[in-house]
Design a protein around this nucleic acid. Structure first.
Length: 278
DNA sequence: AGTAAACTCCGGAAGC
DNA sequence: TGCTTCCGGAGTTTAC
């Protein structure tokens, strides 16, 4: 499930593989993965040069020349890979784009179709569902900025997962960061003192940076742009580790549902603060 | 008004 | 072997 570290890894892979290349033929076999009018894709993309590929939140963005952005959201099961054109297509491959002057193509595959594609070109107003605004980048957050985010009354985990507030954290890295910072996912955000807020921000950032260093976590379907897996799943301390001893205190890791998501935590290290009701 | 929960999309995987 | 249930990112709807 691509979150920030996986999207960052894919974007770096694609930047290395594709920067400076021109796009060629577009083949769209499932039009409803494109938001807005899908027809411009084959009109706008061929011949455009890839200036760079980067990430914003969980999105992978191809910045094209002249001014066009091709934006991929990978959802749960989306893959964005570069491979030889002659290789057989995986099932659920919805979009392929040839890379001019090579025998390779970019492929977007997404069995569950929770992902999507947006093509934004200068002057080409985007009919259909607009691209939702994203919150702040967690790796660029300051201590003061993070305190402002927490300055409302919400469940901590729900807030960290809210892409409109802070962009890029999903279920894996949320649970890992909460455990590292020893905070209960149901903690009300307006009860978190500045010291705990700093501890949490440092946990979020160090886990995301380490996950990027290990090219993300391959739990099920996630692959890098070249098809390789990530390896950060080896270092998960709570995610999908129900019943195994906590690395701090040996208490078996518990599983709960929070904000509609399965949530892994240590009930000893991550205590729910008692609210002062007086 | 702001927050939270339920519902929806979908197919792979787990469980019975 | 085959059926049912679970799962989740994020938008929408509903309730408090």
């Amino acid at each position: 499930m691509p979150e920030l570290p996986e999207a960052e890894t894919i974007a770096r892979d694609l930047d290395r593989l594709l920067s400076g290349r021109k796009l060629a033929d577009v083949r769209l076999t499932r039009r409803d993965i494109v938001h807005g009018d899908p027809r411009p894709l084959s009109r706008l993309l061929p011949g455009r040069r890839i200036r760079r590929v980067y990430r914003r939140g969980k999105r992978v963005i191809l910045e094209l020349d002249p001014a066009t952005q091709l934006i991929f959201h990978l959802g749960m099961s989306g893959r964005l890979t570069v491979c030889p054109r002659r290789r057989s297509l995986d099932p659920h491959t919805h979009l392929t784009i040839g890379i001019a002057g090579t025998a390779r193509e970019l492929r977007f595959t997404d069995p569950r179709r929770f992902g999507g594609v947006w093509c934004l070109a200068g002057g080409n107003q985007h009919r259909g569902r607009p691209l939702p605004e994203l919150g702040l980048e967690p790796l660029e957050l300051t201590s003061a900025g993070f305190r402002r985010i927490l300055n409302r009354r919400r469940q901590l985990k729900a807030l960290l997962l809210d892409q409109h507030v802070i962009a890029g954290i999903g279920n894996i890295y949320c649970d890992e960061a909460l455990h590292a910072a020893r905070l209960h996912p149901l903690t009300k955000t307006d009860t978190i003192d500045p010291k705990a807020a700093d501890r949490l921000l440092r946990a979020v950032q160090s886990i995301l940076r380490r996950a990027i260093r290990f090219n993300g976590s391959t739990i099920r379907s996630y692959r890098r742009a070249d098809g390789r897996t990530g390896s950060f799943q080896k270092y998960h301390r709570v995610y999908q580790r129900e019943g195994t001893p906590c690395r701090n205190c040996k208490t078996p890791i518990a599983r709960r549902t929070v904000a509609g998501r399965s949530t892994f935590l240590c009930l000893n290290c991550q205590r729910m603060p008692v609210e002062n009701t007086s």
